[in-house]
């Protein structure tokens, strides 16, 4: 039983990986070890597929609403979509004071897309993998946000935008200056030569600190989402294991329901946190700080 359970969990946590196998041919990995051996030039087909499907779903739903958007009395879909758009717009405009038309739509995309990715967690853990197995697909991990590639992919895209807008706002010099002359600053006034010497002396330590701060943003952003959803998924898998025992079948059902209800909050909150932190980081990137 224990080994079965271990196998069951491991099976659920293995991605459908396409890449170059040890023998040099390209194809789908037959087990987790083979997938791990494929290295960087491999792709998680299931994560990509669900991420794409859910992203396209977001685009289609919102595009359908946007295409028929009327300034008259909104109905049905437009109502719901406008509620989310209004919420995101309020949140964004309260955090992000600069002019950048990209930020709010990006926050909307992140919020809804990540919410959809997370929402897959509420589909009972065996439904889609079971269906996939019936269709001959061995591995099927349906919650893309439990794949660190997905969450870090988004987080580092945000990171790229942070650097892009940072340099765009402050110039290359200003951007590098921010890394070198913060948080330790030479005191104002005094001998200019001493000041320059202090600046030079502080620069390496500032660079280390600021680089850590900078890198911590995307890493924490991606890993927070991944960690929360991975843990949630793991608990769903463990609860699903209880269904195999006659004794724990009913308590398992109760737990499943309770955890799903709680998880509704978690997935919404995590999507919101991801979107808001993205906006916060980009607002920081736009802030041209005072003189150094």
């Amino acid at each position: 039983m224990a080994e079965d359970a271990g196998g069951y969990i491991k099976h659920h946590l293995t991605n459908l990986t396409f890449g170059q196998k040890a023998d040099g041919t390209w194809g789908i990995a037959e087990n987790a070890e083979q997938a791990a051996a494929m290295g960087f030039w491999a792709i998680h087909v299931d994560s990509m597929f669900w991420s794409l499907v859910l992203g396209v779903l977001f685009c289609l739903v919102f595009w359908a609403a946007a295409r028929k958007a009327t300034s008259g009395v909104p109905r049905g879909l437009q109502n719901g979509v406008e509620m989310i758009v209004d919420f995101i717009e309020d949140t964004t405009s309260s955090i992000f004071q600069h002019t950048n038309s990209l930020i709010a739509p990006m926050a909307l995309t992140i919020f809804v897309w990540v919410f959809f990715l997370n929402l897959m967690d509420l589909v009972p853990v065996d439904w889609i993998p079971g269906l996939a197995k019936w269709m001959g697909i061995e591995f099927m991990k349906v919650v893309p946000s439990t794949d660190p590639n997905i969450t870090l992919g988004m987080a580092f895209s945000v990171f790229a935008l942070i650097i892009f807008f940072g340099i765009k706002q402050k110039g290359v010099g200003g951007f590098i200056g921010e890394l070198l002359f913060h948080p330790f600053e030479a005191p104002k006034g005094g001998n200019p030569i001493v000041r320059i010497l202090l600046k030079v002396a502080f620069a390496p330590i500032n660079l280390v600190l600021e680089t850590v701060t900078l890198i911590a943003k995307p890493v924490s952003l991606g890993l927070r989402l991944f960690g929360n959803l991975y843990a949630g998924e793991m608990i769903f898998i463990l609860i699903a294991l209880m269904y195999t025992s006659a004794v724990f079948f009913v308590p398992g059902g109760v737990l499943h329901w309770a955890w799903a209800v709680f998880h509704v909050l978690v997935i919404t909150l995590q999507a919101f946190i991801f979107a808001v932190l993205t906006v916060v980081y980009l607002a920081q990137a736009h802030d041209v700080s005072d003189e150094h």
Binding site: L13, G19, A36, F40, W41, D147, P148, N149, I150, G153
Partner: peptide, 10 residues
Amino acid sequence: MSINFTILGQ
């Protein structure tokens, strides 16, 4: 669970 090309795809 390894980091691979998926990160760029995403």
